[in-house]
Amino acid sequence: MLIRKPKEMAWEEAAGIPETWITATQALFLIGQLKANETVLFHAGASGVSIAGIQLAKAHGAKAIYVTASSSEKIDFCVRELGATAGFNYKTQDWSAEVLKATDGKGVNLIVDFIGASYFQGNLNAASLDGRVVCLAVMGGTTLPAGVDISAFLRKRVRFEGSTLRSRDEGYQKQLRDQLVEHACPRFSNGSFKIFVDRVLPFEQIVEAHKLMESNQTKGKIICVIP
């Protein structure tokens, strides 16, 4: 499971790699089966997994990369710093309708979701023909609201799959680790893949770190240093 730290990276940067980049690799390639020239949508665009995923998808030749986020600042970060195609503010916009507009009604091939129930209908609406939705978390709940229309599973042949990483066996995790080392580590070394660290705090301030995370104001990783 070990990965050698690229000598070009500080320890604080290297601490931002696992499990973030491994989770993004799993969602995009092992489960989502992203192909070059396909389109992808990341919810929570400024989160650690999405920041990694945007860079991985771009390097893989994705045709367009969309994000949702809670502020224009986070959307600008995803577009200008990471190279996302466009972003939508879920607080002020109907993001699924905006995705359809941006794709000329076709929808996106792959959606990486952390929200769950409250985004379930929107994900089905925004998915393309033969689209895939990979659900990694359920921050928006687990119980679907009344009136959810699941016809997209038949009409568009949408595939919905959930996954966690820690419950996977060692062989599966090794496969992900090897894929990350082969494809991402050289790009960490030459600087084409970047670890975005929002804040570095001493471990004694772990409570403050959690409060900062819960504020939903960060972009990237919060790293705690143990002396």
Rank of each mutant, 00 (worst) to 15 (best):
M1I: 12
M1T: 13
I3K: 13
R4N: 15
R4E: 15
K5L: 13
P6C: 05
W11K: 04
W11N: 14
E12A: 15
A14D: 05
A14P: 07
A15D: 09
P18T: 14
P18R: 14
W21S: 09
W21K: 08
T23L: 05
T23S: 12
L28C: 05
L28I: 03
F29A: 10
I31T: 14
G32Y: 02
Q33T: 13
K35E: 15
A36T: 11
V40Y: 06
L41R: 12
F42T: 07
A44C: 11
A44D: 10
G45V: 08
A46F: 12
A46I: 11
S47T: 09
S47A: 15
V49N: 15
S50A: 15
I51F: 04
G53I: 11
L56F: 03
A57S: 10
A62G: 13
I65Q: 06
I65K: 08
Y66W: 05
V67Q: 06
T68Y: 06
S71N: 00
S71K: 01
S71M: 00
K74G: 12
D76P: 02
F77Q: 04
F77A: 04
V79A: 11
R80L: 04
E81H: 05
L82G: 07
A84Q: 02
T85R: 01
T85M: 00
N89L: 00
N89W: 01
Y90G: 14
K91E: 00
T92H: 04
Q93H: 07
Q93M: 07
W95N: 08
A97L: 00
E98N: 09
E98H: 06
V99M: 05
K101H: 10
I111N: 07
I111H: 06
V112C: 10
V112G: 07
F114I: 03
G116A: 04
A117Y: 01
S118Q: 06
F120C: 03
Q121I: 02
N123R: 08
A126T: 11
L129T: 09
L129W: 14
C135G: 09
M139T: 14
T143Q: 13
L144M: 01
P145D: 08
V148M: 06
L154M: 11
R155K: 12
R157S: 15
V158N: 07
E161D: 03
G162D: 07
T164M: 09
L165M: 11
R166L: 02
S167K: 05
R168N: 08
R168K: 15
D169Y: 01
G171D: 09
K174E: 11
R177G: 01
D178Q: 03
L180G: 02
V181T: 15
E182T: 12
A184F: 13
P186T: 11
P186W: 05
R187P: 00
S189F: 01
S189T: 15
N190F: 03
G191P: 12
I195P: 03
L201A: 13
L201E: 11
L201F: 12
L201R: 10
P202I: 07
E204T: 15
Q205G: 04
E208P: 03
A209E: 12
H210D: 03
K211G: 10
M213H: 12
E214T: 03
S215C: 08
S215P: 10
Q217L: 08
Q217D: 07
K221D: 07
C224Y: 04
C224G: 04
V225D: 05
I226H: 14
I226T: 14
I226F: 14
P227D: 12
